[in-house]
Design a protein around this nucleic acid. Sequence first.
DNA 1: AATAACTGCTACATCAATGATGCAACTAAA
DNA 2: TTTAGTTGCATCATTGATGTAGCAGTTATT
Lengths: 200, 200
Amino acid sequence: MKRQERVRGGTGRALRADAERTEQAILEAAERVLGDNPAASMEQVAEAAGVARTTVHRRFATRDALITAMTARAIQQFDAAVKAARPDTAPPLVALYQGTANILRVKIGWGFALSRASSTDTEIARIQADVLATCDRLFRRAQESGVLRADADLAWVRRVYYALIHEAAAGRSDEDDTDALATLLVDTLLRGFGADGGHL
Amino acid sequence: MKRQERVRGGTGRALRADAERTEQAILEAAERVLGDNPAASMEQVAEAAGVARTTVHRRFATRDALITAMTARAIQQFDAAVKAARPDTAPPLVALYQGTANILRVKIGWGFALSRASSTDTEIARIQADVLATCDRLFRRAQESGVLRADADLAWVRRVYYALIHEAAAGRSDEDDTDALATLLVDTLLRGFGADGGHL
DNA sequence: AATAACTGCTACATCAATGATGCAACTAAA
DNA sequence: TTTAGTTGCATCATTGATGTAGCAGTTATT
């Protein structure tokens, strides 16, 4: 234990500072390029990252490994975004607005990586399931506290919520006002677009 | 003009009856296979269609041609589904429910083909733009007649609507009750999930 | 029954993506 | 200033997808 070992989250051994920067650049470039065209080649990714193609392969043995690494990084940030909203303790409505804003930021930056649901990686699947469960708990609390109607099907609510997140993040303009977007999204989820006296 | 010429919508010359069936089988198989995995090979499509790979290439010279043909067929059905709801003449709310049910049926059957927005084909783009405009007109009428709130951003409404269609169709179980699903979808769009006295 | 169309099969050619290696030059870290 | 890690480049092997062509057998159409 004499030499300091920088621990890296499961991905592998310690890296030199410049290598770490390179890896970061590759992951971000991959998100941009693959987000635009999921069938893009490793070469295009490398070019966007400003490195040689072989360097990409040095860091990520296979294309799958690269995508898995992207997903891992993204899902961790996603998890953090959810937890930061205190979904189990804060008032449901507050947690919903706050969490949505946090999630949107992550989703805008890692849209492609997060769209890859099916992963062979156990750790990723674990976090994913965890986030899902947390989300469901929040919606249940929201329903019990009267924020959501009692007759709302929570499974459908969650699907609609995810769909709205996806759609909102798709119409991104980077530093668009995320908070305003989150407000719009949650308002849509809760009120819809119909006139109040419409057809009750 | 002595021999009868079966006219085919732009794709090419007249086909013999069995060839027509084969073409249909290929298109449907392609939808199933590519819907499950967009990167699937022509071979997998051929196998699913129950024909040899070369036969697929005989009908559709390139992969692009196949996908374009799928999109063309799908967008036409989509267009018909929209028009059948009389979006410009029926009461907005009626047209909305009816149109949604129609669209869902098409979207469930041609989910992949309809997700290919960017097409080089001019005719496809035309129909697509036409449907979009029709949809916007319907929403405008809905707003003017008080079905939608006056302060609703119609561009956002349309995006949400499409997102809901997409999501609802994704959780398909083929002959799930489409009408019930459409009702659920439109109710969601109009009312959301919040309790009525929530935060007005 | 005659004709023309269609299909499966086999074979071939091509091309792009992938992934691995070795080496010389460079750079962070001790 | 060593030392060890990192990168670009050039090279090569492999693989899988794509697309073409011809032939023999089958099937729709007349």
